[in-house]
Amino acid sequence: MLGPRGRLDSQFIHHPRPSSAPDAQIGALATGASSSRDRSGRVLDAEQWLGDEHIQRDYELLAQELGRSDPNLATRTRFVDPLIAFQLSHGADSDALRAFHRLVDDRNGNDIADFLFLPVSDASPTDRARRGDHWSLLLIDRRDRERPVAYHYDSARGFNDRPAQRLAERLGANLHAASMRQQNNGYDCGVFVVDGTRALVGRLAVRRQVDLNLDNLVVDRRALQNRLRG
């Protein structure tokens, strides 16, 4: 387990890093899943599952926006690439530890990351044919380095409990279920992840004690499509 200062407390099995992160959404036969899809993350169809490239592109855009609007919060916040989140959960000790320090440390090796936003997938680390059925969101509050807290937001309640628990444990965080509006289709869980992230970041920018309830989250696929294209 990666402790609050990156300490490895237990050993875990090494699995090779996948060539791409899981294309994870509820509904294995949902429209738009295609191995030949655009990998830039700029193209998202009306009912297409979000892949790692869509989440990572929107996270990059959000990081840029936050850097302009609130540089202090931006310095203390990390929007984690789905590939890195997968590596932190399933990688070898040395790989996970290096990835962890690349996330939280500044150029001088000081741990300055208070908030981590990590996409969670149920993809198999051993079977590449099982690329995942669902995305959810893990927010880790590390303001108390000795007692980090993880909040799990799942738009299909209970579906990703096990992978979220594993990732939280690997990062030394105590896991709490957090409330989130539930999706009503088989393809929007990735939209819930990115829009949930944006909602929480907006609250962090306003006050120290954040309302963590996302029961009234408004998700907007069309707005996401426009952001990705832009």
Rank of each mutant, 00 (worst) to 15 (best):
H54R: 05
S121G: 14
E65W: 10
A92M: 04
N184D: 15
F79Q: 02
R107E: 15
Y187C: 10
F86A: 00
H152K: 03
N226C: 05
R166L: 12
L217H: 05
E169N: 10
E47H: 14
R221T: 15
V210L: 11
Q165Y: 05
L137E: 02
F79V: 01
G109L: 08
F100Y: 15
L66Y: 08
Q225I: 00
V43Y: 00
R181A: 15
I26C: 11
A156D: 12
R5I: 10
D211H: 06
L138M: 09
L224F: 00
A164K: 02
A85M: 02
R98L: 12
D211W: 00
H176V: 13
E47W: 05
A164W: 05
L2T: 09
A173N: 07
V206A: 13
L175A: 03
A129C: 07
R143C: 11
I26F: 10
A164T: 14
R208H: 12
G196S: 12
L118V: 01
G67K: 03
R229G: 14
A33T: 13
S20V: 09
R157D: 14
H15K: 01
S69K: 09
P18K: 10
S94L: 13
D195S: 13
S36T: 14
V80K: 07
L83V: 08
V104G: 00
D161L: 06
Y59S: 10
I140S: 04
D220S: 14
D23T: 09
T75M: 03
N72V: 00
R131Y: 11
